[in-house]
Write a protein that binds this DNA or RNA. Sequence first.
DNA 1: CTGAAAGCGCTTACAG
DNA 2: CTGAAAGCGCTTACAG
Lengths: 347, 347
Amino acid sequence: LPRQGHRSDAASVTIRQVAARAGVSVTTVSHALSGRGRVDPNTKTRVLAAAKALGYRPNRSAQNLRLGRARTLALLLPAAADRGTGDTNLLLAADFYVTVANVAARAAFSQDHALMLLPPWEPRLSVDAPPVDGAVVVDPVRADPRLRALDEAGIPTVTIERDPSRLDDPWWVAPDNRGNTVIALNHLADAGATRIALLSVDVDAGWAIENEEAFTAWCSEHDKPPIVARASLENLVESTEQAVRQLVDAPARPDAIFAIAELFGPPALTAVQAIGLDVPGDMLMASGHDSRAAQLSRPPLTAIDARPDAQANAAIELLLARLAGEPPAHHAIPGQLRVRRSSQRFS
Amino acid sequence: LPRQGHRSDAASVTIRQVAARAGVSVTTVSHALSGRGRVDPNTKTRVLAAAKALGYRPNRSAQNLRLGRARTLALLLPAAADRGTGDTNLLLAADFYVTVANVAARAAFSQDHALMLLPPWEPRLSVDAPPVDGAVVVDPVRADPRLRALDEAGIPTVTIERDPSRLDDPWWVAPDNRGNTVIALNHLADAGATRIALLSVDVDAGWAIENEEAFTAWCSEHDKPPIVARASLENLVESTEQAVRQLVDAPARPDAIFAIAELFGPPALTAVQAIGLDVPGDMLMASGHDSRAAQLSRPPLTAIDARPDAQANAAIELLLARLAGEPPAHHAIPGQLRVRRSSQRFS
DNA sequence: CTGAAAGCGCTTACAG
DNA sequence: CTGAAAGCGCTTACAG
């Protein structure tokens, strides 16, 4: 038989070799290493020393086969459009996704699980592939084919952001979109805004709905008209310019714009400036989702940091809880307002 | 023993059950399914039907244990700075990385491998984790600790972009940085530029070095002065503004700026405009690395599309070649120039 | 506290 | 062309 191929320089050392060196049985080695069963402390010390000396590392395939688990979690990021197709580009927040991916990997590893990246297209293929115990799906859309495929395969999932077509599913982690909207609106009002407009997006996602609802509620609570304009993903810059012009040309011009989606904040800022308005002088602006582009805008855009690291950690923790049979739970994670020049009229 | 845990709804069907249903031995099932060994065509048909009827899916752990491979490739993306630390943010091109990740996952799967995401921090931890046959490391820096850890673990690697501290390593995939620079410079010259400046970055990466060298060579070939300014990652906006001002205030002002790094193009554009210059009227501009931000700038920024999908596919293919014992190889992948308004004076 | 043995699901010499 | 058997490395009843 070929030796284990995943370490190319040295044949893997097995539990049997450790047992031989420590002068005990493989059972005792297994017990000493896993902490299960009773082992004499001296014996245990000897085993540990032997394992270390030999550089023993357990064979995951053997463990997984024996235990009937994969100890692997899957991550499904949103798909960018395939080159050349007319598909809408769902890659709304690349900075966010990269951090989610890296932090989720770390969180999974620290819990002794591997994080497998599944391609977001071809969900059937993905599911036919190596087994996973559970999956994290980022930014589900309505009737998301990835979620359907995972369901059909019987793989438990947790979503980051909620699936708008199954709001009854309790297994989700998301920014506290409603709370974040309130934080941003209160900040703009504190900064002097009296008529705040919402720049929304024509995307069928939970966060968009929640942001709009929270905006409407805030407006009625504060006895303000709920001014909403909407831009579109397919036609991002032009539709943002149109929406901004519509807001600016309205009989009662707003004095602040809250753009909920990460990608739309900087273009909205540019559009306002192109009309000849000063930000923050003539118009306060804030974005619902922070990004490098928001930080790099002139002026820098005030934005809600959705804390991708916290989202990823919570998602992995929740998925492991689900796999452990714990009762349903969800986590709305409060964002952190990053105040920058676009919303500071007097500074 | 617990049943295989990665399919929660139905106990996994094993090769033994397929054998029973087809009325043959497990050996024959294995042969029929794998295509190895000789099997009577009729028998094979029967086995395949039985496997399909039962929904048989091979247990990867068992296969891997038996074959001594992991059939798993690792992907290491660059790290964003940990929150609160002063580390330089190496997340230079999030759009690029997300596409690389998704496409690499698809490429690995189509070759019957899983793609495992390793956390870019704590390389020891990463390597102690589940076994992988090989790894793709994106954007290595000089003396990259991730590469060292992988080397020490004996895991073969392929890099996307070259490690500047081991240019003798043949196992890399990268944009054709030199060729791309020439394409961009020729385009700017064709568009009317007579004095082109390079906006570079103070990062110790292979691509930066290659872009600068290609620029210098192009300039001497065309009998032009090699005007170079440099911005810095830590101080992105301010240093970009400074670099731009330095270029604009020079006795012989350039009429075009080529910003090599993805993140610096849009801020450079904004800085030029803030000085009161029109783009493309007074200054042509192009970026060495395309991004959503470049597309969304006003005017949109001409940029080189580094084709992240091609990079990812080539990297996975090259890594599998390396694992298969094929001779060393590398791939410089030509980029595609995306001409936009920032470099079209007459349109 | 310790160990011999069974068995997870698979692949592959080997014998027929 | 087909099948019985060994064995990959591990964990865990079970017996001592």
